[in-house]
Amino acid sequence: MSVSLYYSARRDEPLTDAETATVGRIAAARHASFPHPGEEGLHLYERGSDAAGQVLAGSTKLPRAPERVLPVIAHVLDSVTALRRALPGAAWHVHLDDLDVDWDEDEGYALPGMRDAGLLTELDGL
């Protein structure tokens, strides 16, 4: 059984050319800084015309190795945080399968404990 992180943004106005370029720059930078080769990082779907106003969407299949799950989640949520901040006025939905990931204006998207050094060390020992 796999677990995935899903992210999408909707708004009435389509992305501008400048926003599309910004999304591309953010995605490229986040791909370049992804620390786990062989695992899936930020994965944005190809955009087509969407009558429901979806301007961005993607998903990430999480690794099975316990020691990689939280670092991958943290990296992808940081990526989605950067994307959200670059697309004003969009309504975002970010969730880990059936669990919604809440937005915090200061921290962005995060799950409790995802940066806890003790937990990361414990998972690395599994």
Score class of each variant (00 low, 15 high):
residue 45 Y to L: 13
residue 52 A to F: 07
residue 37 P to Q: 08
residue 82 A to M: 07
residue 115 R to G: 12
residue 38 G to Y: 01
residue 70 L to K: 08
residue 82 A to P: 01
residue 6 Y to E: 11
residue 108 G to L: 05
residue 106 D to L: 11
residue 51 A to V: 10
residue 60 T to D: 00
residue 27 A to T: 14
residue 88 P to N: 08
residue 117 A to H: 09
residue 80 V to H: 00
residue 16 T to I: 04
residue 58 G to K: 14
residue 71 P to G: 08
residue 1 M to R: 13
residue 30 R to H: 10
residue 77 L to Q: 06
residue 69 V to F: 01
residue 39 E to A: 08
residue 76 V to Q: 04
residue 1 M to V: 12
residue 53 G to D: 08
residue 76 V to F: 02
residue 11 R to G: 05
residue 22 T to R: 15
residue 75 H to P: 06
residue 103 W to E: 00
residue 120 L to M: 09
residue 50 D to Y: 12
residue 85 R to E: 02
residue 1 M to Q: 13
residue 63 P to V: 10
residue 92 W to S: 03
residue 67 E to P: 01
residue 30 R to P: 01
residue 54 Q to I: 13
residue 19 E to I: 03
residue 82 A to S: 10
residue 113 G to V: 05
residue 110 A to N: 07
residue 46 E to S: 11
residue 105 E to V: 08
residue 78 D to E: 15
residue 27 A to S: 11
residue 29 A to S: 12
residue 43 H to I: 02
residue 11 R to A: 07
residue 100 D to Q: 12
residue 58 G to I: 06
residue 87 L to V: 05
residue 33 S to M: 07
residue 109 Y to F: 15
residue 67 E to N: 13
residue 21 A to G: 06
residue 105 E to K: 09
residue 120 L to W: 07
residue 8 S to R: 15
residue 122 E to Y: 14
residue 54 Q to A: 11
residue 46 E to I: 05
residue 69 V to A: 02
residue 58 G to E: 06
residue 96 L to V: 03
residue 86 A to Y: 00
residue 39 E to T: 00
residue 55 V to C: 12
residue 18 A to K: 02
residue 90 A to V: 02
residue 2 S to E: 10
residue 22 T to N: 09
residue 58 G to H: 09
residue 117 A to S: 09
residue 61 K to R: 14
residue 66 P to Y: 03
residue 72 V to S: 02
residue 124 D to S: 15
residue 50 D to I: 07
residue 103 W to P: 03
residue 85 R to T: 00
residue 72 V to F: 04
residue 85 R to I: 00
residue 46 E to M: 09
residue 104 D to A: 11
residue 71 P to F: 10
residue 85 R to S: 02
residue 19 E to S: 04
residue 11 R to T: 06
residue 15 L to A: 03
residue 65 A to F: 00
